[in-house]
Amino acid sequence: MDPIKLIKSVYSVILLIFSIVLISGMIATKQTNLSENAHPAAAYCLLWAAIIWLTMVEGGQASLVGLIPVNAELYAESHPKAYKCTHITNKGDNLDRYLLGRQFMVVLVVFCVNISGGPIGGAEIWGLPDWVKGIFLQAGLAMILLTCNVGQLNSQVNASLCMLDYTDNYFALLTLWVAMVVEFSGLLHSSYLVQLAVAAMAGKKVVSNEDPRNAGQSIFFFGRCLVSLAILWFCLAVTFVALFDGKTTMWKGVPAWLAVIIFFILMSVVGTLEGMQIAFFAVA
C-alpha cells in the first residue's frame, strides 16, 4: 500500500474511533439532547438505528441509479429482491420520485442522529482541553466523522461497486417504499415547481417517461405542489425569524443579514453537490 494512503487511513480510523467513543461518553453522561431529556438507552438506540438506516438510504441511491441502464431480466433470478427494487424505480418517472423522497429521509435521519449524539451547550467530559472540545464537540467534527464515515461514505462506495448485492434484501425494498410514500405525500412537491421553472428559463421542456397527465392527475399533482409551496414558505418564514432573532446555532457576532447570505450559499452548495452526486452515479 502507498505509505501516504496508509498514513491517511490510519489517522482517519483513529479519529473515527475517538469520535465514536467521545459521542458514546457524552450520551452515557446525559450530555446530548435526547439522553438528557429521555434516557441514554433511548439515545443509543436511536443513534445507531438512524446510522444503520442512513447506510441503506445512501447506498440504495448509488445502487438504484447505477442499475438504470442494466437489463433487469439479467438478474431477475439471481437477485430477486434487487429486481423488485429496480422493477419499481425503472418504471416511468419513479426513480425521480424515489430520489425526492430519499432526500427527505436523509435530512430526517441526520436530524435523529444529531438529537441523539449532538452535545448540549457547555458539555464537559474526561477533562479534555478546550481546543479538543471546541473542534470535536462545539464545531461538530465528532458527529461529522461518525455520520459521514459510518453512515454515508462507506455505504456509497460499497453500493456503487456491489449494486445488486446491496439492494438484494428487504431492508432496501422497505427503504424504497418509504421514500416513495414520502414523495406521494406531496410534502416535497414544490421541488417540481422549481424544476419546471428552471426548465422554462433554460427554454427546455421537462422530459418525462410517462404519458401526459389527464385533468384529474394534473389537479392532484398541482394541488400537492401548492400545499408543499405553502409549507415551504412557512418554513422559510420561521427560519428567517430565527436568524434575525439570533435563535440559531450561527456563530455569535455574525450579523443577521450575513447569516441569511451564508444560509442561501450553503443551500446552493448542498443542492449542487447532491445534483452532481446523482449525475456521477448515473454516468459512472
Rank of each mutant, 00 (worst) to 15 (best):
T86F: 00
W126Q: 09
A242N: 11
E58S: 14
I52F: 03
E183C: 03
I4Y: 15
M26Y: 04
A41W: 02
I144S: 06
V65K: 01
E73S: 12
F104L: 12
V65R: 01
A50W: 00
D130T: 11
W177D: 06
T248G: 02
A199K: 12
G253F: 00
A72R: 13
V65E: 02
F104W: 10
R224I: 01
A197S: 11
S191Y: 09
S268E: 01
A199I: 11
V241D: 10
G203N: 12
W251R: 06
K247D: 10
M180H: 12
E124K: 15
C112N: 14
G127T: 15
P80Q: 15
L15A: 15
M180D: 09
I278F: 01
S116M: 10
C45F: 14
A197V: 09
S191M: 13
F171N: 08
Q156H: 01
L187P: 03
S208T: 14
G186K: 09
G253E: 00
Q277R: 11
T249M: 11
L174A: 14
F136G: 03
L22F: 15
G59A: 08
V150Q: 07
A279W: 00
V181I: 15
A172G: 09
H189Q: 06
V132P: 07
M163G: 01
L141S: 03
S24H: 06
G118A: 15
V150W: 04
N158M: 03
P119Y: 06
S24P: 01
E58C: 11
S268G: 14
D93I: 00
W233L: 13
A82F: 04
S160I: 00
N154H: 04
S12C: 13
Q217C: 06
L16T: 08
F263D: 01
M276E: 05
H87D: 11
P119C: 09
L161P: 01
L64T: 04
Y170F: 03
P80L: 13
Y11T: 14
Q152S: 05
V238W: 00
L99P: 08
V270F: 04
L16V: 07
I262H: 05
I265C: 03
V107T: 10
Q217L: 07
S218F: 05
F263Q: 03
F171H: 07
I23N: 10
G140K: 06
A215L: 14
G275L: 01
V150K: 12
Q217H: 08
D130M: 08
G117R: 12
D245Y: 04
C162A: 10
V182D: 02
E73V: 01
S228K: 05
A123M: 10
P255K: 04
M163L: 08
L164V: 02
V283F: 00
D130H: 12
W53K: 04
G60L: 01
S228P: 08
L141H: 12
V269N: 04
T175Q: 11
I278R: 09
W126Y: 14
Q217M: 06
V109C: 09
L47E: 04
M143N: 02
